[in-house]
Nucleic acid binder design. Structure first.
Length: 423
RNA sequence: GGUGAGGUGGAUGAGCGGCUGAAAUCAGUAGUUUGCUAAACUGCCGUACGGGUUACUCUGUACCGCGGGUUCGAAUCCCGCCCUCACCGCCA
């Protein structure tokens, strides 16, 4: 959620930035400011009226003490009048505040200066590429065939037991998942991230705090009986740890990592290119997340990108890093880098990580602040990234490393998997 | 799920329906002093939204788990909900 003060102070700039994100209703900014003006007026009126009630009430107390009943009664009459007024103002304020708020949450985060303009994934900028695209042997096949060949994942039974997009991993497939989770977490904690196992469901306030609500209501599984949401990413429970917290400047940066399954309804996004592990309703992911001083967040973003890049390099996968254009970025992000690995048998790039600086967009809604050296309250910045999402890493490991003898795993996974090859 | 106790500022913990935004202690912080692995003393030490100044300061309102109600007036009384703890029940 953007801060109204920023809209007021830099109105034209805000509209220009919203344009980069292809936001279609710049007039919303003006109507928000107008509503805020109204809110202020009502607030002033409410406060002075309430003030009169308060002083009159004190007066009544005194008069009663002195036994001046008649005068007290007179005052009471006055207060009754004020109270009618207050009730009306209060109602109006609630209404205006709600409308203001409803409009404010419709504004996406403002893209950073670095964000390239553009509307589609074709407009993303390739920042770096690395690794080498392997030359596959003649019998090479896509991962969904390899999965069957080595009996690693069972989609049919998953469909039977739950539904489409909920596969069973089994045997060496399950073990490879576990090995990767373990390795990723070890890699992250070695870099100073504190490991968490979060709740896999959150309440409404938390879903709202990180911006899943109201924007992505339909994307989450909702446990209606208890009002919980299945987490679409561990970012939601982790970031909400610091909801409504006032931190010390010395607490920053806060670095967290967690493994969790991620549940996504992916309503409407199933079409082509979703075969095999490319898109699922439940998938495994290890996440890294930081809460930082606002002056440091872009340095931290670079640091996180390098951290994840090294991880992808350790997995010996061909990859590229994209700087997302305004039209392809997430709603809450100010700057996002996507990591894609090349899936040699499918001959396409698969997104395996998304690293973003949210600046204060999340923390404003979460009210996660700190007191600076001057004692002033400031919003922290929040950043997060996948390190990494497993299914597509799994798919590309299979595809890129397949040989006539089996699938050769990268060296870093040997000790976790307990073998060098799947055959 | 049942019964009981309880939820007050960073922490502990007082708070007769008006003098309580809230005692006290600790922690924190600024300073004084004595000097020495620190002690004593003094000041400051919640957040949000307004108004006025924009440098600090000043001022109004709201907030004592959350939401309602009673009242001229509620941290204090009433109702609902949430949470914590204890015991019971159930159970990996």
């Amino acid at each position: 959620m953007l801060q109204v003060n920023v809209l007021r102070q830099r109105t034209d700039w805000v509209k220009e930035r919203l344009g980069v994100k292809n936001f279609k209703q710049p007039e919303l900014v003006d109507s928000i400011i107008a509503l805020d003006d109204e809110r202020k007026k009502l607030q002033a009126d409410y406060d002075t009226t309430q003030s009169r009630i308060n002083s009159a009430s004190k007066e009544i107390g005194k008069l009663m003490g002195q036994g001046k009943k008649e005068e007290a009664e007179e005052q009471k009459q006055q207060v009754t009048g004020f109270k009618i007024r207050i009730a009306g103002l209060s109602e109006q304020m609630t209404e205006v505040e709600k409308e203001l708020h409803d409009k404010l949450v419709q504004l996406p985060n403002l893209p950073a200066e670095l964000v390239p303009p553009g509307k589609t994934p074709d407009d993303n900028e390739i920042v770096r590429e690395g690794g080498t695209i392997p030359q596959l042997y003649d019998g090479a096949v896509p991962h969904w065939d390899l999965i069957t060949k080595y009996n690693l994942v069972d989609f049919e039974t998953g469909s039977k037991v739950t539904g489409r997009g909920f596969p069973f991993y089994k045997g060496k497939g399950a073990k490879l998942q576990r090995a990767m989770i373990q390795y990723f977490l070890d890699y992250n904690t070695a870099a100073g991230y504190t490991e968490y196992i979060p709740p896999f469901m959150v309440n409404e306030a938390s879903a709202y705090g990180t911006g899943q609500l109201p924007d992505k209501e339909g994307q989450m599984y909702h446990v209606t009986e208890d009002g919980f949401y299945l987490i679409p990413t561990s970012e939601v429970p982790l970031t909400n740890i610091y909801r409504e917290e006032i931190l010390k400047e010395t607490d920053l940066p806060i670095k967290m990592t967690a493994y969790s399954p991620c549940f996504r309804r992916e309503a409407g996004s199933f079409g082509k290119d979703v075969r095999g592990l490319n898109r699922l309703h439940q998938f495994e992911k290890v996440e890294v997340l930081q809460i930082t001083h606002p002056d440091k967040s872009y340095d931290v973003l670079d640091e996180m990108v390098q951290h994840i890049e090294k991880l992808v390099q350790n997995l010996e996968l061909p990859y590229r890093i994209l700087r997302l254009c305004g039209g392809d970025m997430g709603f809450t992000s100010a700057l996002t880098y996507d990591f894609e690995v090349y899936s040699a048998a499918q001959q396409r790039w698969l997104e395996v990580s998304s690293v973003s600086n949210m600046e204060s967009y999340q923390t404003n809604r979460l009210k996660c602040r700190f007191k600076d050296a001057n004692g002033k309250m400031q919003l922290t910045h929040s950043l997060n990234g996948s390190s990494l999402a497993l299914p597509r890493i799994f798919a590309s490991l299979l595809e890129n490393n397949q040989t006539a003898d089996g699938i050769k795993l990268p060296q870093v996974l040997h000790k976790y998997f307990g073998a060098e090859i799947i055959n």
